[in-house]
Amino acid sequence: MTADSGERPLGVFGYFVHEAVRRLWVYKRTSMVAIGMIAIALMTLGSFLLISENLNRAVDRWQGQSQITVFLTRDATPAQIDAARSFLTREPELSKFTFVSREAAYAKFRKHFTQLAPVLDDLDQNPFPPSFEVQLDEVKVNDPPFAKLVAGLRRVDGVDDVQLDWQWVSRLRRIASVLSLVGLIAGGVLAVAAAFTIANVIRLTMFLYREEIDIMRLVGATEATIRGPFLLEGIFQGMCGGVLAVALLYGLFRGVHALATGPASALLWEFLFSEFIPWPTALALIGGGVAAGFFGSWISVREAREEKAG
């Protein structure tokens, strides 16, 4: 004796998942609004993170927190180069240096800026001057004796410029931090708005299912059993929003990559879009979507307790 029923019965968790997915499908338009809101919020945050992480990565690559670069004139003679070397050797604070010849500078640029290599090919001659890269034990930009030393270095015959690399490094780092902060604030505000959108979608669903909820309570379903599918529905919406945000962000990243064909775009690419966000960050974005979905649905289901027996 077997009953010929269409579907296989479900356990409680299977019921949660089945109901949550079914409601997402049945109310797909409202669900899409919630998913879209989450995706916009996380994509905003992800965009800022993508740019700031790449900026930081670029800065790391040209690490110069305790470095100055002494550029010589392009036509510096060996005597002028020796004069500059002697000056550096004399000063204990500047004595850790490396000479970078014009050829070495050319090769270094080609290595670090592969996208710009065609520009170099169009030039008749090597545009890079010889230089000394001086490692400092500590950053002394505001130290007056050190400033005096740098001024003396600038006066050495054959020295064209002395760049204090850590100044722009610290500026870039500050920009990266500000970008991250702006992204977090904008993404956070949008994520809260998205969570409340999910809360309203879940509230609407619970209203539509109020009769089923009443039946469940009367047959002895626990609150966890009643609320589970709604919580899961919110979590699924958040997760879909997170996955969509990462997918769109990747599409944007690839789109910029495809468009970055000219030298000017290539420089932008090099700085801001060299690599996609690392996978832990991508997972964190999806996790953020899940958290927003859970928070939104939790707001709604906690309001939906059975009215206190009056």
């Binding site: 004796m1 077997t2 009953a3 029923s5 269409g6 579907e7 296989r8 019965p9 479900l10 356990g11 409680v12 299977g14 019921y15 039946i215 469940m216 047959v219 002895g220 379903a221 626990t222 059993t225 009643i226």
Partner: peptide, 25 residues
């Protein structure tokens, strides 16, 4: 369906899924 109405209640009551069809029938 009729079966699902019964199975739904058995699910929320924690009746093992393997028993749903037998009990419903």
């Amino acid at each position: 369906t009729v079966f699902e109405n019964l199975s739904f209640v058995m699910t929320v009551l924690g009746v093992p899924p393997r028993d749903h069809k037998k009990k419903a029938y």
